[in-house]
Write a protein that binds this DNA or RNA. Structure first.
Lengths: 341, 341
DNA sequence: TAAAATAATTAAAACGTTTAACTATTTTAA
DNA sequence: TTAAAATAGTTAAACGTTTTAATTATTTTA
């Protein structure tokens, strides 16, 4: 039923080895033969059996994509877009992506994704923050890893990141250029490397403009950068420090929470306070007023991660680990305004 | 390196055939032998090679999951949850899910997902409405299909659906019980079977209460059930028919658009008008006021679809096609209210 | 106690690739 | 002119399973 390499070989009048060599662009084959074979492949609509190939090469052709369930289900399609980026890349190569979610509170005896236990992937892309317990369990399996939008606190890893420092800098610099001096930083989960970096960018921008850093303006004790925590942070900040004229929120979700607090407390945006977010979920969610933010090319992150993985697997020597920084961009909309005295 | 069936056989002191038979629960094997083998499997942490198995059984162990890109990226994780449901099921069986997106405006020469071309799936789950051109191209491949939350206009298919008629009925009945008589229906894309069914439920509820159906209250000319189209529909309805006191929106996204129109035009919800949605994205998105809606168990849809697929593949005879209706539930929140005269 | 029936296990072929080793032919160099 | 080198292609083994048919062991029957 199925068309096999044998059928191709017979049709082209060559051995199956020749067909295989053509398939792998081996230069030992003359152009004449190559074309005969390619013609036969096309005419028979031949596709090699992944199983047969896998059996002899000991590869699976699968790449795992692991993230926590709550990240996958996030309202704004952030990780979904990263995943889509990886899928785009696999359309043009020989891999398939297997997605698996794990729980955010992964525990000792929770099972690992089946493709790990069964060694049914050639590599794994890990998107977003995952429990360290998961990582330590995973490490026993000696599977090539690429991290995207997160990396473990210690060790050397292949990783694709947003340029968080630059983003934090751009956001803060924008506010400074609008005349703001009392600029707050609202972050959740300061142990997350991305948040740390955004804070570094924030501080760099202030320093470069000789604005003293006020620790009271920096809120990093919320455990998770979610809308509700933005709301709480805004309450803390704005009740205690009436002189704040601008807030840099470490992501759009928190910015939304801040905006909600403002709206409920009759604080006008951008007239009374300017707000900058991070992520740019604008295109996915409509927000009033439109949010000035740092655009993060989410699909691009996935594309870079998958490309990195594919290269990793190609060069069997696992060389040095690579870090890729994806550039960000300031998008000015209506939530920021020149300061008025 | 890898542990193979040979290692297990040697350790258990039996032939590899015996190991294989144990693995397949063949009753020809005595309990004594079975236990010896199972013990060896456990001790060696043996997992059969999917490639080797696939080569001989001509199966891949993969199930494709296809949906349009815009569905996958929808703000409310609707299809994402359906996908997650399929993933949950595969944790307990021997399949992997391969996700592929296609464009909503799939065209003649757009490539099909690679796993179709390469016949690298045993079956495909199709989630949500997909272009009919895609379906006609797909039909050439003779791959078992299961549709979820959508099915093609003609033909006989395995399909998992929400009980849309019931949902439409429950939503409308709720409004009627609150004393409403002038109840509008806002749907997009009336060619979509789910929308048609919700409209049927709407009509059934009105008829069962002897309320005449007013065609002017039924808006189905928006092409897509999106927020912006809900907004437009609300404008059309509420400027022309001041006597409308309630709206049943065919999904929460459109309900949100309607709410936005109302808020901008100083129409109070639920005081001036009651609104019922469909889908229940409440838990994923926070809406003010909280939306009365029909809860759709999204993950459940995915679970049912994958179970159906697995059974389909098990019973090699493709029996009759099956239709599964997943029940829905009315969730009363704050967007509906007893009518006041 | 031998034959027949049944139960348990195994041998071996097959699945469709890849690739190292080999052969045959042509080209190059001395 | 010939040996060596380069080029082009082939042979055959190997990968790790499943499964049918054959074989062996055990139990039942007469």
């Amino acid at each position: 039923m199925q068309v096999t390499i044998k059928d191709v070989a017979k049709k082209a009048g060559v051995s199956i080895a020749t067909v295989s060599l053509v398939l792998h662009n081996n230069k030992r084959i003359s152009n004449v033969t190559r074309n005969k074979v390619l013609k036969a492949i096309k005419e028979l609509n031949y596709h090699p059996s992944r199983s047969a190939k896998g059996l002899v090469t000991k590869t699976t052709g699968n790449i795992g994509f692991v993230l926590t369930e709550d990240h996958f289900l996030r309202t704004e399609p952030f990780y979904t877009k990263i995943f889509l980026g990886t899928e785009f890349v696999t359309r043009g190569n020989d891999y398939y992506v297997l997605l698996a979610t794990i729980k955010r509170d992964f525990e000792e005896h929770d099972p690992l994704p089946r493709f790990i236990l069964e060694k049914n992937v050639d590599g794994i892309i890990i998107a977003g923050k995952v429990p360290s317990l998961f990582l330590s369990q995973l490490s026993k399996y000696k599977i090539p890893l690429v991290f995207v939008d997160f990396y473990p606190p210690q060790g050397n890893y292949n990783v694709v990141l947003i340029d968080n420092i630059k983003g934090g800098y751009l956001a803060t610099k924008h506010l400074i250029e609008l005349g703001h001096k009392n600029i707050a930083f609202v972050g959740g989960d300061i142990t997350h490397p991305s948040i740390t970096d955004r804070l570094i960018g924030y501080k760099q921008a202030l320093e470069s403009s000789n604005i003293p850093i006020n620790q009271n303006f920096i809120i990093t004790d919320e455990d998770y950068p979610a809308r509700s925590n933005g709301y709480n942070a805004a309450r803390k900040l704005l009740t205690n420090h009436k002189n704040i004229t601008a807030i840099f929120a470490c992501n759009d979700a928190m910015a939304l929470g801040i905006m909600q607090y403002c709206s409920e407390n009759d604080i006008k945006i951008p007239d009374d306070i300017s707000i900058v977010g991070f992520d740019d979920v604008e295109s996915d969610i409509s927000i009033t007023p439109q949010l000035t933010t740092i655009r993060v090319p989410k699909t691009e992150l996935g594309i870079e991660a998958m490309n990195l993985m594919v290269n990793l697997l190609k060069e069997k020597e696992n060389l040095q680990t690579k870090k890729i920084l994806v550039p960000v961009e300031l998008i000015v909309r209506n939530s920021t305004k020149k300061i008025t005295y």
